[in-house]
Design a protein around this nucleic acid. Structure first.
Length: 258
DNA sequence: ATGGTTGTTGGACAA
């Protein structure tokens, strides 16, 4: 099974790019983030015509996550538990072919110290509780993929000085991301590519970041031990970032035996 | 130091 995560930065603006990429790469499952549309605006028909079922958790203008699959999507849950007042569509989970699949778009959190930063920290704490209290209780293969908006170490960006004041690289955010792994989850890219550094999944639209490879690694698959045992490869596909009308992110993929 | 870009949306806001 080929499984991808891709922050699409508007699924409607990017539907032609997305279909081209799906037709070429033929992933079995794709986790999408930043749909920027409501459920009824989602391009279900176009995706169905090229072989993909979709489960969508959208909202107006911002955020929104979806799972695309060539296989049956089961047991869908929309929203991260722990705060009924949270109206942002940033998390969903489902089961596909016996794999527990979680898709997230973690809050950006900028600027540090303001309300959006506090929301990010609380959201990360809420996710930690959910991982510990529910997700890790199943022995099934588990993958949590998405745009985490975390630069885990200085090796995950070209120039750390560019990110010292960014909410993706703060000590509080890095500590929470590390804590997920201390619970028993593995960063698939690092596990399958030991010591490979400065491989990025996001390049800003501004200041020629793509042409200078001034990127950051903020998209991840975190796997439980069972899923890691079944995973044979993890890589970044940089080709979509070089296309016309590209998203500012590019896909991260894994091969998982099932 | 400032501004540089893109998408949603129709003036800002988010990233």
């Amino acid at each position: 099974m080929k499984i991808a995560t891709f922050n699409i930065n508007s699924v409607r603006a990017r539907i032609e790019n997305l279909c081209d990429w799906l037709n070429t790469e033929q992933p079995d499952i794709v986790l999408l983030q930043e749909l920027k549309c409501q459920d009824e605006q989602f391009p279900y028909e176009k995706l169905k015509s090229i072989g993909y079922e979709a489960s969508v958790y959208g909202q107006k203008a911002y955020n929104g996550v979806a799972v695309l699959s060539k296989h049956k999507i089961e047991k869908v849950v929309k929203g991260l538990p722990g705060d009924d007042s949270d109206e942002q569509s940033r998390y969903m989970e489902c089961t596909i072919k016996g794999i527990n699949v979680c898709n997230l778009y973690l809050p950006n959190g900028n600027p540090i110290g303001k309300e959006k930063y506090e929301y990010k920290l609380k959201w990360m704490d809420r996710l930690g509780k959910h991982i510990k209290n529910k997700l890790l209780n199943s022995a099934k293969p588990l993958l949590i993929g998405g745009d985490w908006n975390v630069i885990p170490t200085d090796d995950d960006c070209l120039d750390p000085d560019d990110w010292v004041d960014d909410a993706a690289a703060s000590n509080q955010v890095r500590a929470r991301f590390k804590a997920y792994q201390n619970l028993g989850l593995y960063d698939a890219f690092n596990a399958l590519n030991p010591n490979k550094k400065q491989v990025f999944t996001f390049w800003d639209y501004q200041r020629g970041a793509w042409s200078k490879n001034n990127g950051i690694r903020i998209d991840f698959f975190l796997l439980n031990g069972n899923a890691l045992d079944k995973t044979t490869n993890c890589w970044v596909d940089t080709k979509p970032r070089g296309k016309e009308k590209a998203s500012d992110h590019t896909p991260l993929l894994i091969d998982l035996n099932s």
